[in-house]
Design a protein around this nucleic acid. Structure first.
Length: 305
DNA sequence: CACTTGACCTGTCCGC
DNA sequence: TGCGGACAGGTCAAGT
């Protein structure tokens, strides 16, 4: 479920803590989770220093100083959690929060770390750095992966090459967005938003949310959209993603950021997603849930046309 | 060619 | 209580 705002939140967290760290050890315990073997990955990255943590759509890219990049896709349940060497979270064991959070959040606990004892049974890859800190790649459903690729060839990677533009790129205009929609297509606008070659980073949550903000029914065909609806949709995509990044992303169930914190977008700002049967925040009518493009789809039949 | 559906996984929730 | 089945969603292969 991590979509662009969730991956961006993780990226910002990892950039703060990973850059400059040197890989001392790496262990892959689930071979589906890495495109190469544990031994090959170790041979490729042990001794290398992290230089950059970037993102392309939902893909997180860890750049190393040995001209290798780790493409990391979390798919549905992937997590990347960093744990410093000397911090014992021990939440379950002690039943109490570490003092450092008390000061960080002024004594309250607006958000609770969901870091349990790591590694746990969903841990697929463990990166150990030379200072004793760890990065855990957890993935309950084993759909995510880590793929080492020469940094100079990242753009040539089949998956990367298939991605459309970043919706939050300042250079990406409403005209660009309109031009990327399949002209005259009878596909539903929702399926086109989920297609990563249209615009990269939108998943089920932000497809529903942006269509609500733009007041467009998810089942509408692309061909039926007016110019002003396309412009509204463009603006809606950008605004709900920016809001979600500000909220630390959306947590349905599995998503946590690099510190194990949940995202608050769904609680604070979501309008339709996961709100079936609840009153629309604009008109009060019950939010409907159907299936569009094979996905659970939420909308307000009163507000969206 | 355009588009939809199923497979990949595992945990959770629902009904019987 | 336990069991079976539906469901969740990102991407790709296979099907219509």
């Amino acid at each position: 479920m991590p979509e662009l705002p969730e991956v961006e939140t993780i990226r910002r967290g990892l950039e703060r803590v990973l850059v400059g760290r040197v890989v001392q050890h790496v262990e892959v315990s689930e071979k589906r989770s890495c495109t190469v073997s544990s031994q090959e990955l170790a041979a490729a990255i042990v001794g290398a220093q992290v230089e950059t943590v970037s993102r392309h759509g939902k893909l997180l890219i860890i750049g190393l100083d040995n001209a290798l990049s780790l493409l990391t896709h979390l798919r549905m349940t992937g997590q990347l959690i960093f744990k410093a060497a000397d911090v014992d979270t021990g939440l379950e064991a002690s039943g109490a929060f570490p003092d450092k959070w008390e000061s960080d959040f002024g004594g309250g606990y607006p958000n609770q770390s969901f870091i349990g004892n790591l590694p746990d049974k969903t841990t697929r890859i463990i990166f150990t750095f030379s200072d004793g800190s760890h990065l855990y790649f957890n993935d309950q459903r084993k759909f995510g992966y880590v793929k080492p690729v020469p940094t100079g060839e990242v753009q040539l990677d089949d998956f990367v090459a298939s991605l459309g533009p970043e919706p939050l790129d300042p250079c990406f205009s409403a005209e660009d967005f309109a031009a990327r929609l399949p002209k005259g297509s009878k596909r539903s606008v929702k399926s086109v938003l989920l297609d990563q070659s249209t615009v990269t980073g939108i998943g089920n949550i932000y497809a529903d949310e942006s269509l609500f903000l733009a007041r467009i029914l998810p089942s509408r065909t692309v061909a039926s959209l007016t110019r002003s609806e396309i412009t509204a949709l463009y603006a809606a995509i950008r605004s709900c993603m920016e809001q979600s990044i500000a909220d630390g992303g959306s947590t349905m169930k599995d998503y946590v950021d690099s510190e194990g914190l949940r995202g608050e977008y769904l609680d604070l700002h979501a309008t339709v997603f996961n709100r079936a049967g609840l009153p629309c925040r604009v008109c009060g009518a019950p939010i409907r849930k159907t299936k569009v493009a094979g996905r659970g789809t939420h909308y307000c039949e009163n507000c969206q046309k």
